[in-house]
Design a protein around this nucleic acid. Structure first.
Lengths: 340, 340
DNA sequence: CACAGCATAGCAACCGGTTACGCATGCCCG
DNA sequence: CGGGCATGCGTAACCGGTTGCTATGCTGTG
């Protein structure tokens, strides 16, 4: 049985239009692309023929001929994660403004798959945005050159020609810790992320080098993860740690923790202050609203496009970006209690 | 200056491999596609040549030749909305399992743009998933035939050959109202969605035909919207209405409302019960956890793929789906207070 | 031993556009 | 009035694969 396909049975091609208008295919092509040096009268005849036949050019054929697909790919580790969704959205909207479309590939948190996907996605498109916080650094360096033009989001690398958009997690964490210490907190729990992740490593670094060292300050580390459930499950350990504040790996973990604390009847921030990281859209609407460090992920997606666009146009891309997250104080943090 | 492009300077083509292996391009093609009737020895030589030259076939050229792109498009009104993100994720993962990739197009809530986008996206791909809750019904019917193969998500239509995956919003709302009435609520506020949307119309229908009519029951309608801010802004109106329960258009509105109520110090569910709709991943982690009607959007995305896949393979797609949302009772609803 | 029949690889057309090049036409100007 | 040049369109090659048809060589059989 015949497969349904792009090549639908009676699909009208440029040859049909040419015949209808009584000109050559070349002329039709020139008219469709608005190229100069075609007689206005003929141009009109061609447009009329195209309209009559309801012609629209075959994108694939065009791509093959001109060597560009007008499409870029983005590879993310998990489409369920709000951060990557934001990046995708920023990229998609920015690219759309320049007439480009976006192909998504979700590696479902599988680093091995990620390499395959990146290669394959890149081959289908003109350029690639790679978001791979878990990928082994060495493997990444080896992979990057063959992906160009490409940009790397959310982690550092030093491959020439590959723009990097990174987030200064350490500085973000420091501003959070600073804020908590200002409120009098001394014993702080770090509800940690996935051990293998670049982001977790960077956050630890921030914890170990406080901005304004304070007498008697200490950080207790609590192994956790990156999702709601992880935060929810970590509640007991956090409470048992004797900390007066919990600095969570990200907003999802913080929300999971908040949920568990609410179920336990623990007062936030009275008994325990809680902070997140990322400032996902939902962070503003938790109860209490979440204090967090804002990472402008949508903006990173847009900036990724700006750089890809420069590379595609043969221009020099703008300088790399290293965003400093900004502290957003909401209701989930408060002054440490006198009796604590 | 030469543009960077898919056609990189020294890109190795099938002709190079053929030359290297001392065979024709046709033979290389057959080997690469694992077609029968090629001498094992030659097959090995070709594979060796391909490996040596690091050859990988040009996807665009292949697509042109075989008339398939192995890509499907999805058009959504707003990539920031968790519901559409879920659909995208379900689609993307299911399609990936069958070797297909997904192109996304975000109409940014612009119905006019939506039509253009859908046409264009469809032309680049083998098939289309259309999520267009706001699009005018007449326009939709006119558009659908030329999009085939395609499936329509989240709304009804009767164009033959276009599978539909719809959600029975009315039934979902009825189960929520039922639940509230069981808890003793009589005066219920409906915090409404966008007037133009298909979903809002369907929900109203559910409200007007309760499952188990109850003496003295009444519904007060409060105009609102579909986002956090809308729900947040509607808090005063809800409180002023004298209702003991608020049925929100969706989870986002409910979360906005919960946030405002928390700020006002209003006890939920003591003073006011609140329900959402959709059961987005965050609904479980609000405080209090949100009672809502669960719409399996990821599943819809997967089912969309199953049907597209059938159409692409020339098979008869499975019957249409009309999901009945299931009530998920959490902590944001409770028995009406005696003194209310 | 001759010939039918089959397995295998190459030729060439094709997918549907784009574009370098060349030819024909007409205009300007010497 | 003729040469030069600009303009405008068609011819054909090309993008990089796939595939129907055919030619060749080998095997098996009568």
């Amino acid at each position: 049985m015949a497969r349904m396909s792009t090549r639908a049975a009676g699909r009208v091609t440029i040859a049909h239009v040419a015949a209808e208008a009584g000109v050559s295919r070349a002329t039709v092509s020139r008219v469709m692309n608005g190229l100069a040096s075609v007689d206005p009268a003929i141009g009109e005849r061609v447009r009329a023929a195209a309209a009559k036949l309801n012609y629209s050019p075959n994108t694939v054929a065009r791509s093959l001929a001109i060597g560009r697909t007008q499409t870029v790919a983005i590879v993310v580790p998990d489409l369920a994660n709000p951060m990557f969704q934001e990046t995708l959205r920023g990229l998609s909207r920015a690219a759309a403004r320049d007439g480009y479309r976006v192909l998504v590939a979700d590696s479902v948190e599988n680093p091995a798959e990620e390499v395959i996907l990146a290669r394959e996605a890149r081959r289908r498109c003109d350029a690639l945005v790679l978001v791979a916080p878990r990928m082994d650094a060495e493997q990444l360096e080896a992979l990057l050159p063959e992906l160009a033009p490409a940009v790397l989001v959310n982690r550092a690398s030093a491959v020439p020609g590959i723009p990097v958009l990174s987030v200064d997690y350490a500085s973000g964490i420091r501003s959070i810790v600073d804020h908590l210490q200002d409120l009098g907190h001394r014993r702080i729990a770090y509800v940690a992320g996935p051990a293998a992740s670049h982001g977790d490593k960077a956050r630890r670094e921030g914890l170990s080098r406080p901005l304004h060292p304070v007498e008697g300050a200490e950080v207790i580390e609590i192994p956790c993860g990156a999702m709601f459930e992880d935060g929810h499950a970590a509640a007991q350990a956090v409470l048992a740690s004797g900390a007066t504040a919990a600095v969570c790996f990200n907003d999802l973990v913080a929300m999971g923790l908040l949920g568990a604390l609410h179920e336990e009847g623990v007062d936030v921030p009275g008994r325990l202050s809680v902070t997140g990281f990322d400032d996902i859209p939902f962070a503003r609407y938790t109860s209490p609203a979440l204090t967090t460090a804002s990472v402008p992920q949508t903006h990173l997606g847009e900036q990724a496009w700006v750089r890809l666009w420069a590379l595609l146009e043969g221009r020099e891309p703008e300088h790399d970006v290293d965003v400093k997250p900004s502290l957003v104080v909401r209701a989930s943090t408060g002054r440490v209690r006198a009796d604590a």
